[in-house]
């Protein structure tokens, strides 16, 4: 049985300048213990999808228009505030991109790491403190007991991210949502943090959604991948298929436009133009105006994600018609 099934999620923001369709019919599902990667550029709806699942969309202007998100049988989108509160930070934990703004600057590190235990498990303070020190040691913070009395500003970026990971893992969640967990970090520290997350994930058998714009990170960490663009999923499938046999022109373009260490070609491949304005409505493929393979009908026919192969789906109309 899947741990999480999301169907037709639509999250719109009703702004003065019109309706922004930030997430438009996103569906995916994941098994317990699985790692799912969500890639896409800024504004593609990756983070809004995650925030929608956790009930963290500011409303107004945001509104979940449609959809189901079954987490272990419970619909997250219609669950009461209390139910959500008992899930968040307990069975579903989240790591945010910027550890400086996600940690409370006025609270000591120890108090922040202990908080989930005090709130969700009714631990005594001494017990919580002992377990917090244990988790901090596991994430590689030396001399954890003494450092728990420090404040976030006394930690480096990599250390703060470790604190966030410790906080997220302390309740042994079933699902970890990591939203760009290493974007603010240097490459060498990024490698350490990713290795740490994977190690802990294996030990605890937890599922993870890794949201990132870095294809390299996805390739190294995930089993399945969703490629998002303009609030929609354009392609989804096993990581090998996505990287070695991409079935959407956007996925291919994204990979080609990344400078790589092995490639020394003279000019980089570029995708012309800009991502679309999400407050304008469009019927067809959102990528069509920038796609060099697009035909006139690409902008007219509604595009939906369909399988080209069991487990590998694309929203490209031309691919589905076997024209590419």
């Amino acid at each position: 049985m899947p741990l999480l099934t999301v169907k037709n999620l639509r999250t719109y923001f009703h702004t003065r300048n019109g309706i922004v369709r930030a997430v438009d019919k996103v569906s995916f599902s994941m098994e317990p213990g699985e790692t799912l990667g969500i890639v896409g550029e800024s504004g593609s709806g990756k983070s809004v999808t995650m925030y929608s699942l956790l009930g963290l969309i500011p409303s107004p202007p945001g509104r979940i228009e449609e959809g189901v998100a079954l987490f272990d049988g419970e619909d997250l989108l219609t669950a009461s505030k209390n139910t959500l509160r008992s899930l968040r930070g307990k069975r579903i934990a989240m790591i945010f991109q910027d550890p400086m703004t996600a940690l409370n600057p006025y609270m000591r590190i120890g108090a922040q790491v202990m908080e989930p235990l005090l709130v969700h498990e009714g631990c005594s303070r001494n017990e919580a403190r002992r377990r917090a020190a244990e988790v901090l040691t596991q994430v590689g913070i030396q001399d954890a007991a003494a450092r728990m009395d420090r404040y976030p500003h006394e930690f480096s970026g990599g250390m703060r991210q470790r604190v966030m990971i410790a906080m997220a893992l302390i309740t042994h969640p079933d699902l970890l949502i990591a939203d760009e967990p290493t974007t603010a970090l240097d490459v060498t520290v990024q490698a350490q943090v990713l290795e740490l997350i994977r190690e802990r994930q294996r030990d605890l058998g937890m599922a993870m959604i890794l949201v990132t714009h870095n294809l390299g990170v996805v390739a190294g960490a995930c089993k399945h991948v969703l490629v998002m663009y303009a609030g929609r999923v354009l392609e989804s499938g096993p990581v090998h298929d996505i990287f070695h046999d991409p079935r959407h022109p956007y996925t291919r373009a994204l990979m080609q436009s990344m400078p790589s260490l092995s490639d020394t070609s003279d000019t980089l491949f570029t995708i012309p133009g800009q991502p679309p304005d999400l407050s304008a409505s469009f019927t067809g493929c959102p990528f069509a105006p920038r796609c060099h393979l697009a035909k006139d009908y690409c902008s007219d026919i509604p595009c939906t994600l369909e399988e080209v192969w069991p487990g590998h789906a694309t929203a490209c109309v031309r691919t589905l018609r076997n024209e590419l």
């Binding site: 990024q190 490698a191 990713l194 294809l215 990170v217 089993k223 990287f243 070695h244 260490l261």
Partner: peptide, 17 residues
């Protein structure tokens, strides 16, 4: 330390040098 956009055949760990 640069992550390579090429999924490894066996999924071991990230290499943090």
């Amino acid at each position: 330390a640069v992550p390579v956009p090429d999924p490894p055949s066996e999924r071991s760990t990230f290499f943090s040098p």
